[in-house]
């Protein structure tokens, strides 16, 4: 996609995939969830956002695809201003950005297939999709996506009949249907067992390394950050307090992000590792 002419400073190829500039979000209740956050994301990065719950990670991810309207600041996608995009433009940007959620966000009463197909709605014919008609090519694409996450045999089951790990894999498959360039993962493993958590993150890593999909993922566990991230951003009370490589997170940095009380816990977990 060509960048808009209003940004001549970033010729094609040179501009980062995503630029977040001075992003601020104040909720109607007065809570300041994000305060003047800026960073760039390059193509093929695996960026991890860390921070306590309530630090603004979810808000940040949702401001990127405007599920939440930012109060001020800009988000540029390939040089194009998402924050100023008209509804049709916004939809066409959104379909390039897949998203995976902590609570999976599947329609529990629909079949796995319908859930996966719903990831393709941005591409589908609006009228045919409304009455549930999908061309065979899309069904095949859905089957391939399910095969990639290893649950092709569950295709006709209801989503709520699946275990948590399986449901998150359906979530990943749904995001794959969009053929995304960027994948937003909002605490994708917080509702899962540690063993399953690794398998989901391995899928994301695979997508990142093999398919070249850029990933922005918010995470809780620091050991997983070291294992998967190529770059890390730390948020505290809506303010960016850290940006750098995973190995740069030392005790001091950690304290900045997680606060004083968390220190001992982290130390314990390091000793155990």
């Amino acid at each position: 996609m060509l960048p808009l002419s209003s940004h001549p400073a970033h010729p094609p190829g040179e501009c980062p995939l995503l630029q977040v500039q001075n992003l601020t979000k104040v909720y109607p209740s007065g809570t300041v969830a994000l305060k003047d956050v800026s960073f760039d994301v390059d193509d093929r990065e695996f960026l991890v956002v860390i921070g306590l719950s309530g630090s603004g990670k979810s808000t940040l991810l949702r401001c990127i695809n405007r599920l939440i309207e930012p109060t001020s600041g800009r988000v540029l996608w390939d040089g194009q201003d998402i924050t100023a995009a008209a509804p049709a433009e916004l939809r066409s940007i959104r379909r390039q950005i897949g998203m995976v959620f902590q609570q999976f966000n599947l329609v529990r009463r629909s079949s796995v297939l319908t859930n996966v197909l719903s990831g393709r709605l941005g591409y589908a014919n609006p009228w045919l999709s409304l009455i549930g008609l999908w061309p065979p090519t899309e069904r095949e694409r859905a089957m391939r996506a399910l095969e990639r996450v290893g649950i092709a045999d569950k295709v006709n089951e209801r989503a709520d009949a699946l275990s948590g790990g399986q449901q998150q894999r359906v979530g990943v498959a749904r995001a794959l249907m969009q053929e995304p360039r960027l994948l937003l993962a909002d605490e994708p493993i917080a509702s899962l067992d540690p063993v399953l958590a690794h398998s989901i993150l391995q899928y994301l890593e695979q997508l990142n390394k093999k398919d070249g999909i850029t990933v922005i993922c918010s995470l809780h566990f620091l050991d997983l950050v070291h294992r998967y991230a190529t770059r890390v951003i730390g948020l505290k009370d809506g303010i960016k307090v850290f940006e750098g490589l995973p190995q740069e997170i030392d005790r001091k940095r950690f304290k900045e992000v997680y606060g004083e009380e968390a220190q001992e816990v982290r130390a314990a977990s390091l000793e155990a590792a």
């Binding site: 599920l67 897949g98 009463r109 719903s118 609006p126 999709s129």
Partner: peptide
């Protein structure tokens, strides 16, 4: 209804009518 699926389908770039049909109606 669970707002999660609505959020997920909106995030995939679907229209409002599609969001209602796929995210609200089945629920």
């Amino acid at each position: 209804i669970d707002p999660g699926p609505i959020e997920a389908i909106t995030a995939s770039g679907a229209r409002r009518s599609q969001v209602v049909m796929y995210g609200v109606v089945p629920q």
